[in-house]
């Protein structure tokens, strides 16, 4: 079983997000990049499949801001067997279409049985990478997956819908799946293990394919959302806030 996990780094939302001078996008010089949290689940799911059904996991990503090594070492520490970074002269805000084209070019040569990636990323303005990979590779795609097992050339996935409804879907391998949540919460990779791996492991490099196709979308303006409404903010310390909440509930006959 040859499993490939496509990883994407996105601006960390732990910080306040600064905008560039034109207000047309984030100021990428002033943000830290982290691995998309859904990709962490994709990686975990890949390792779970490997642990159950055997095979090897290749972690792959576009080295957008020359900071992917740590992500890949972490992936290796968590159980990936091989790591590849796509290198080139990139814009930190490269869109999903571009990244998907670069990723697909490398994945094709890996002849995977299973390609996993996060179901979405918080900055996927032009759509999600998973279905794009499937389109490039001519593979079937299922997204919003919360569990995946492989048996006899078929992936059996749980696909989530609104209301907590889950469909069981069978997909012929090879295929691409967009992971919403791994069957188990992502494991912890001890830093000493990551550092050990960083000393010994090789990260393969692949050149990005020639300028990827443009997504055709122009981002005109980015801003904090205009509040359609604004909550009535309750002032005071915790005690006073609690008292006010109780007043509101009492007033509405909710107590």
């Amino acid at each position: 079983m040859n499993i490939v996990v496509a990883l994407k780094q996105i601006p960390s939302m732990a910080d306040e997000l600064p905008l560039n001078a034109q207000g047309s996008n984030l100021d990428f010089d002033e943000v830290d990049f982290v691995l998309n949290e859904f990709d962490e689940h994709a990686l975990e799911q890949a390792v779970l499949v490997k642990e159950k059904s055997g095979g090897a996991v290749t972690a792959l990503g576009v080295d957008l801001i020359e900071a992917l090594d740590d992500v890949l070492y972490t992936a290796l520490a968590k159980g990936a067997d091989k790591a590849i970074k796509i290198v080139g002269d990139f814009e930190p805000g490269a869109d999903s279409h571009t990244q998907a084209a670069w990723l697909a070019a490398v994945i094709r040569d890996l002849s995977p049985d299973l390609v996993l990636t996060g179901v979405q990323a918080a900055n996927d303005l032009d759509g999600q990478i998973g279905p794009m990979l499937a389109a490039h590779l001519d593979l079937p795609y299922v997204g919003v997956v919360t569990g995946l097992e492989v048996a006899q050339g078929v992936a059996k996935v749980h696909k989530e819908f609104a209301g907590g409804v889950v469909a069981d879907i069978e997909v012929d391998l090879p295929c691409v799946a967009g992971i919403q949540a791994a069957a188990k919460p992502p494991r912890y990779a001890p830093i000493s293990k990551i550092r050990q791996i960083a000393k010994t492991a090789q990260i393969a490099e692949a050149e990005a394919a020639a300028a990827g196709p443009d997504a055709g979308v122009t981002l005109r303006r980015m801003a904090k959302p205009v509040a359609t409404g604004r909550a009535d903010m309750l002032a005071g310390d915790a005690k006073q806030v609690a008292a006010k909440i109780i007043d509101i509930l009492t007033e509405r006959g909710l107590l």
Partner: peptide, 20 residues
């Protein structure tokens, strides 16, 4: 769960831009 499977796929397959 449905649109997320189809839209971006269709975008690449048909060359239409996509906005999510």
């Amino acid at each position: 769960s449905i649109g997320m499977d189809v839209a971006a796929w269709l975008s690449v397959k048909t060359g239409r831009p996509c906005i999510a």
